[in-house]
Design a protein around this nucleic acid. Structure first.
Lengths: 347, 347
DNA sequence: ACGCACTCCGTAAACGTTTACGACTGTAGG
DNA sequence: CCTACAGTCGTAAACGTTTACGGAGTGCGT
């Protein structure tokens, strides 16, 4: 099957009518429409996207940009595949397709993004891994490309984003640990420029101060957000002269390395040191003792991202009233065994 | 910047010349070319892909189809992100872009694929998760869409594929265990129709027979390839009247559940039961005792897939002579502690 | 003066689709 | 009989690009 022209000839109908019939336009006879649809099905005709895109100036494709760096490969833990399902469930209603755009590790993400939208491969973008200062956001805003970011940024004051509630997580974790009697609480932060790190630490500091616990910079451990980073974090914790009784991790994968390093020194997580991880990712579910962490429904997050994106697009806006507002995504604590002890008994 | 027309006007040059200059065609003056490239850079012009694709009948996009089912999200462990880097390193040389096409879980993979290629979103495809009988392969072959499959199939006798050497893995694992004195060796197989399961079991059977050990069907445990599947596999192993002394897993994630179930019954992996997993995936690296498994370089695998794909495409074939042959991808055993004991001492 | 080769560039058609516009019916109302 | 209108359909232009073709100009040899 070559194109709509052959289909039209086969039916002895004009090409315009065929197009209208296929696209559900009103001014076409019911019977004709039926014949067209039947023939299209029979001959396996599907519209060539290039022609359609060229004419309408839109591709009906939404891009989800992800980094494919070595670090991401090791660490990302299918996070994006998880939100993908939610996104697709929203997009399917409008016959939009979701494509994942993996930015090569040797290409500047900003350049990659520019290339993709300039080539008109996608109509809109979902970007993630938002940096504290992120040129992509300024670019997309100026170019008036619809987009939504997973993660806040300082770049533009006003753009659509959803961010996990890192502040809530840090706050909640500190409150919980203090309630269990802890006074000396360490925390990890990423060594990168990702914005979430700053929010995380800041919220931690505020929570401490609320309870009149002085902020001690030596308790903020800056390591890579990886298993090795967790191992190193534990190492540094053990070296502190006045050892903390609890630690809050910003990334669940770190718990694995942390556990190992602790056990090497005979320090038992959940008994000698309270640990609160971050997300309930698959990899973290298998730790013993089980990790206290925060649950996220990736599917729901994807749905919210999808709705917010469409709410920024004129064509679809009407379907999603009220979905334009930025969201700080709440997380629910799933208590595990890794912090389930009262520090009072320890001292 | 609207299009090539504006760029041409801005330069007082015809649109044809601009196009030729940008595309590196020979018949254009050096000085003119320089001016065009400079202006394009300055004005941020990038060719509209729709127009280009329409004209040339190709999109310069390669699709990597992946499943985004709930199971994949839980289990896939960034496998695809890993091969992505390798693929991109090959494609970049030809200015080809790689896009990941996540098939929604509620859509038939075959229909999804048909839709994508019929819409001409991609020029070529990489498919994975090959089924024993896979309609996608027949479809792509007949439609003459260049493709390469990750995984063999029985569908078409002759199509480009690379498959992990499951037979070698099973064979190697059995040989190793027998050398350690084991005679009663269990194995797991997926409950799905994936082709690899059949190859795995068949090779296991042959290896046993080579050593005159009778094949016992009750030692083939069919469970889902997941952590839960591993848990259940252990459960079934423990119920066997004559308990095996070793087990070979087809999927490393199963080891996590298996370990847990074993320990619940006081059976220590690596001491009371030898375990050999499959891939050295990140999640499996953190088990204690460390899992004996097989190493794969996902990057290299991606490179091989990319080269093989291009070798099937007339335009690029010349660059990749000898890359057209199917590959059974060898795996290298990484000995761990999970099988490092001599069964002789046990009995 | 002429022909020829060569370099460079402009013209216009083509790719497959959507859609504004107008044409053609048939019907109803005056 | 005329007009208005709704329903249906065909025509042709437009989207942005690439590329076959041919033309203009130059240099060179005869």
């Amino acid at each position: 099957m070559k194109g709509i022209r052959q289909l039209a000839e086969h039916l002895n109908i004009s090409i315009g009518t065929v197009s209208r019939a296929l696209n559900g336009k009103p001014d076409v006879n019911q019977e004709t429409r039926r014949r067209v649809l039947a023939a299209a099905e029979e001959l396996g005709y599907v519209a060539n996207q290039s022609g359609r895109s060229l004419r309408q100036g839109e591709t009906k494709v939404i891009g989800l940009m992800i980094e494919s760096s070595k670090e991401t490969v090791e660490n990302a833990d299918n996070f994006f595949l998880g939100v993908t399902s939610g996104l697709q469930s929203v997009f399917a209603r409008h016959k939009l397709d979701l494509l994942m755009l993996p930015c090569p590790s040797d290409e500047d993400p900003h350049e990659y993004l520019k290339r993709m939208v300039a080539r008109r491969i996608v109509d809109a973008m979902i970007i993630s891994d938002t940096q504290r200062v992120d040129r992509r956001i300024d670019f997309l805003s100026r170019a008036k490309i619809p987009f939504v970011a997973l993660g806040r940024s300082l770049s533009a004051s006003n753009f659509p984003w959803i961010d996990l509630d890192f502040e809530g997580v840090a706050d909640h974790a500190v409150e919980r640990l203090i309630a269990l009697g802890h006074r000396r609480i360490a925390i990890t932060a990423p060594s990168s420029e990702a914005n979430l790190g700053y929010l995380f630490i800041e919220s931690y500091r505020r929570a401490l101060e609320r309870h009149d616990i002085p902020f001690d910079p030596s308790l903020v451990i800056r390591v890579r957000s990886s298993e090795q980073g967790g191992y190193q974090a534990a190492h540094e914790l053990l070296l502190l002269e006045e050892r903390p009784t609890a630690v809050i991790l910003i990334y669940e994968l770190m718990a694995i390395g942390l556990y190992r390093r602790l056990m090497e020194s005979g320090v038992m997580p959940g008994r000698d040191l309270a640990v609160i991880g971050f997300r309930d990712a698959p990899r973290a579910r298998f730790l013993q003792p089980s990790l206290s962490c925060f649950r996220i429904s990736l599917y729901d997050l994807g749905v919210a991202l999808g709705r917010m994106l469409l709410a920024t697009m004129p064509v679809y806006r009407e379907f999603y009233p009220g979905d334009g507002r930025n969201i700080i995504w709440p997380l629910e604590l799933m208590p595990g065994e890794s912090d389930a002890f009262d520090v009072g008994a320890m001292v």
